[in-house]
Computed example of a mutant assay.
Amino acid sequence: MKKFFPVYVRVPLLFALFFFAVEWLVGGDGEKPAFMEHPVVLILLGLFLFALIAVEIVASATNKILDRLMTPEERAAKEAETSLPFSQQPWVKKLMSKLTKTKTIQEEADVMMDHDYDGIKELNNELPPWWVGLFYVTIIFSVIYLLRFHVFDGDNQVVEYEKSVAEAQLQIEEYKKNAPDMLTADDAKYLTDPADLAVGKKLFDSNCMACHKIDGGGSIGPNLTDDHWILGGGIKNIFHTISEGGRPGKGMVPWKNNFKPSEIEKIASYVISLNGTNPADAKAPEGDIIWSKANLEEGAADAAPAEESAPAEQVAPAGEVASTEESAI
């Protein structure tokens, strides 16, 4: 064995097996191995490595002493044995004999049958033990399978797949809830925290005031402080309008490439916070959809864009000047 597994292979291999066994027993993982969380494991690994090296040193010294004590005949026999190919090694031949129960040529007379066909005789060899054992294993497996899936109605592959898909879908939905930058209009919430509104105000002041004024009273874009909305009020509609843009040829451009979804949610929340204020020189109301911030306080759902209002796909009404800079909120 030492010929095929030298010391520089045995020691690392045995140490690696011991290391993974300890990690599995203690409960370590790839991000934080057990020896980092439990320093005593590191001591145990060090002692095992020391013991391995000590055993190898002692074994090597013992072999050298025994080799010197051998007679020339014993040394020659040992060299002849170690020079044999792998398949002719005594331990390999012994193992194969146990696995196959083959008979030597000298033992064939014991299993010879009376059949004789033109000088060809038949041997009554035993079935290989490994084959018989595997056959018994298949019988045991079939009984367990029968009971598991046909008697006790266990989940088959289709049901297991469907359950796995359903579980994965739940994990995806849970992940989306905790991943702000994967927000959609349906997931957006009206934020009332002052820190969130402050971020929304900063983004609004630097990007939206040119069309809506800094107080939301409206300039090129509509007034954001009254209860009239062109594409619908409420967090979901405002989020969608900011993200996807307003009416083609008239409304503002989509901002989804400029802001993260979490930032759009903060801007939309700030826009809602402007509702009901009374800025000076506010623009006249526009839009046929009526919605106010009071709806949120009353627990009402967001107002959906009405069919008679101007949705994002509708052309600008006659008499209005088309402008790519005008907002359609």
Rank of each mutant, 00 (worst) to 15 (best):
A210Q: 12
A76P: 00
G200P: 03
L52A: 05
I242H: 02
F19Y: 15
E297T: 04
V165H: 04
A168T: 09
Q88S: 14
I43N: 06
M252G: 12
P6H: 11
M113I: 01
G234H: 10
G28R: 09
W130G: 00
F18C: 11
E325C: 04
F204N: 01
S323E: 04
P12Q: 05
Q88D: 15
V26G: 00
N258A: 05
K93Y: 00
A280G: 05
G46Y: 09
I264K: 04
A306R: 06
E79Y: 06
L13D: 10
D116H: 07
L197D: 05
L274Q: 10
A198C: 00
K293R: 11
S269Q: 05
E174Q: 15
A328N: 10
E108C: 01
L123P: 02
Q169S: 14
F15C: 12
D196F: 02
A59C: 04
D187S: 15
L134I: 06
G217M: 03
E325K: 12
F50T: 09
I238A: 09
K177P: 00
M36R: 08
G299T: 03
D196T: 01
E325Q: 13
V22L: 15
G319H: 02
A322N: 07
I120H: 07
R247S: 15
I290E: 02
D155A: 15
K101T: 10
N125D: 06
K64C: 05
K3R: 15
L296M: 15
E265P: 01
A328M: 02
H150C: 06
P33K: 10
S273H: 08
N278I: 11
A16E: 07
P254Y: 13
L17V: 13
T241L: 02
T102M: 07
A179E: 12
G249T: 07
D186W: 07
L66W: 15
Y117W: 08
D193N: 14
E313K: 01
K266R: 14
